[in-house]
């Protein structure tokens, strides 16, 4: 061991930075580059079609003929169209009833699944099934279930049980068809609601229920004073999404009734498709589609501002 041997001299070098590397270190450029793919996708697949749709709504474009700007003419025309108004009515009715049904049943299911039940994880998986199946497939299944001749429900009621003499009329007259479609939509929408609300329920600390138990709260009071208010923020977001999906629904109605009988089950989306694509009146179809926007904006604003942020969720600050 000799302490006198000098250690080799070595100075730490800073690596030289190239021009490209300096460019990427420049924040504005980096931000621009990172945003580019997302912005590109959004512009191409969201902004452009939406803009094109809105533009078409103010033209008289048909398939095979470039349209000219006609101002509000499409909308004025629609104002006097009873089928359009019937579609508006049914869209609102369909969304309203189906949303209530989905949330009542979905919340109920979520509460059940939040308890200690046997085969809990299997039940959760089963509940997700209607949501996993492609909508068109489940719509075709419902089409069969609702079929005037081959409906399984009719078969059970008429042939197996003998409770009825005639087959059930599901989709052959206006009101039964409307209710049948709502039932199919509820069936399809429950999993989304149940699973998201279940996730919300699981974020509520169990000690709150224990504290409430000691405070003397009954089962209903625990739901009313603890579960429901604590679930409200998530409920609001899920409801916003659900309303948007339901109001713009197309697949179920198109596959089961195509808007019939006699246009009684047209939603705005199916009517827009029928007029715009099948009827070739692109301008008019676009106008129908565009007329959905105010409804959606209103529904979103209502559930978002009406239910979402609560004072107790915010951190600092007194008021």
């Amino acid at each position: 061991m000799s302490a006198t041997t000098a250690a080799p001299v070595w100075t730490k070098m800073r690596p030289k930075q190239g021009a490209l590397s300096r460019l990427f270190d420049w924040k504005p450029f980096l931000a621009f580059v990172c945003l580019l793919p997302a912005v590109g996708l959004l512009m191409t697949f969201l902004t452009y079609p939406l803009g094109l749709g809105i533009w078409l709504a103010f033209t008289d474009t048909t398939i095979g003929r470039e349209g000219i700007w006609v101002g509000l003419e499409n909308f004025i025309w629609l104002m006097d169209d009873p089928i359009f108004w019937s579609a508006v009515f049914y869209s609102v009715f369909y969304t309203g009833v189906a949303t209530i049904g989905k949330f009542a049943l979905g919340l109920w299911l979520a509460l059940l699944l939040n308890q200690h039940v046997p085969f809990k994880s299997m039940l959760r998986a089963i509940i997700l099934l209607p949501w996993i199946v492609p909508t068109v497939l489940s719509a075709i299944a419902f089409w069969w279930i609702y079929d005037p001749q081959f409906s399984i429900i009719s078969y059970v009621l008429v042939d197996a049980l003998g409770w009825r003499d005639t087959n059930v009329d599901f989709i052959n007259t206006a009101w039964p068809a409307r209710w049948s479609l709502i039932a199919a939509n509820i069936w399809r929408g429950i999993p989304f609601v149940a699973i998201t609300l279940l996730a919300g329920l699981q974020t509520i600390p169990p000690s709150l229920y224990e504290a409430a138990l000691l405070d003397g709260a009954s089962g209903w009071q625990r739901f009313r004073h603890i579960t429901f208010p604590m679930l409200l923020p998530i409920l609001a977001i899920v409801m916003t999404f659900s309303i948007i999906f339901t109001f713009t629904d197309f697949q179920l109605v198109y596959a089961i009734t195509r808007g019939g009988p006699v246009n009684s089950t047209h939603l705005l989306a199916t009517l827009a498709f029928q007029r715009g694509i099948q009827g070739g009146q692109l301008g008019e179809g676009a106008a129908i589609a565009v007329s959905m926007i105010p409804f959606l904006v209103f529904a979103t604003l209502f559930s978002y501002y009406g239910l979402a942020r609560r004072k107790w969720q915010q951190g600092e600050g007194n008021d």
Binding site: S207, E210, D215, I226, P229
Partner: peptide, 19 residues
């Protein structure tokens, strides 16, 4: 049942109702 035992409990995480 707990509510009829006439007791009060302070929890480790306080279990205050946040809303």
């Amino acid at each position: 049942p707990p509510k009829d035992r006439d007791i009060a409990m302070v929890f480790q995480n306080y279990a205050l109702y946040p809303h």
